[in-house]
Simulated assay, not measured.
Amino acid sequence: MEVIEGFLEKYPTVKLLQGYALTESGGGASTDSVEESRRYGTVGLLSPNMEAKIVDPETGEALAVNRRGELWLRGPTIMKVSEHGS
């Protein structure tokens, strides 16, 4: 948060948008709207056609709201994992 505030102080005309992406997702897994961009610390809403859930990494069971776990994504841009590990 301090880095964002410092940047905006130095460059007040720049609009920052946040998002979430990883190599395996082939790009952004979430999108940011103008409204969401005012709430630093959020990555916005899931991109269209994407699904997400937070799971216990040991069991793969879905967790309740506000629990810490592993993010699982599913959608048309997600790389498929081979059943044979290659």
Rank of each mutant, 00 (worst) to 15 (best):
S86K: 13
R74E: 07
R68I: 15
S30Y: 08
T23R: 08
T59D: 02
P57W: 08
V14D: 03
G85L: 02
N66H: 09
T13W: 01
P57G: 12
T13C: 06
D32P: 00
E35W: 03
R67C: 11
R39S: 10
V3S: 02
L17C: 00
P76R: 10
S82L: 02
W72S: 02
L8D: 12
V55E: 10
G6M: 14
D32G: 04
E24V: 12
K15H: 13
E36R: 14
Y20Q: 10
S37T: 06
V81K: 12
K80V: 15
T77P: 04
W72A: 10
V55W: 04
R67D: 00
G27H: 09
S86N: 15
R68H: 00
E36Q: 13
M50A: 10
L46K: 06
P48V: 12
S30M: 15
R68E: 02
V3Y: 02
E61R: 12
R39M: 11
G6T: 13
D32W: 01
L45A: 13
G60F: 06
T42F: 07
T23Q: 11
G26E: 07
A64P: 02
M79T: 14
S25L: 15
D56E: 04
N66R: 00
K15I: 14
P12L: 00
G6S: 12
I54L: 06
P12Q: 01
E83F: 01
E9L: 09
E51K: 15
F7W: 03
E2T: 06
A29L: 08
G44C: 04
A52E: 01
E51T: 12
G28N: 09
E58T: 05
L71A: 09
E70V: 02
L17V: 11
T31M: 10
S25N: 00
L22N: 10
L45D: 04
G6A: 14
H84R: 08
S82W: 01
S47D: 12
A21K: 09
T77S: 14
I78C: 11
L8P: 09
D32H: 10
L16V: 10
E83K: 10
E83Y: 05
R38F: 05
Y11R: 07
P12I: 08
I78R: 15
E70S: 11
R67M: 04
S82M: 10
S25W: 08
A62T: 10
A62H: 06
S82G: 11
L16K: 03
G75L: 11
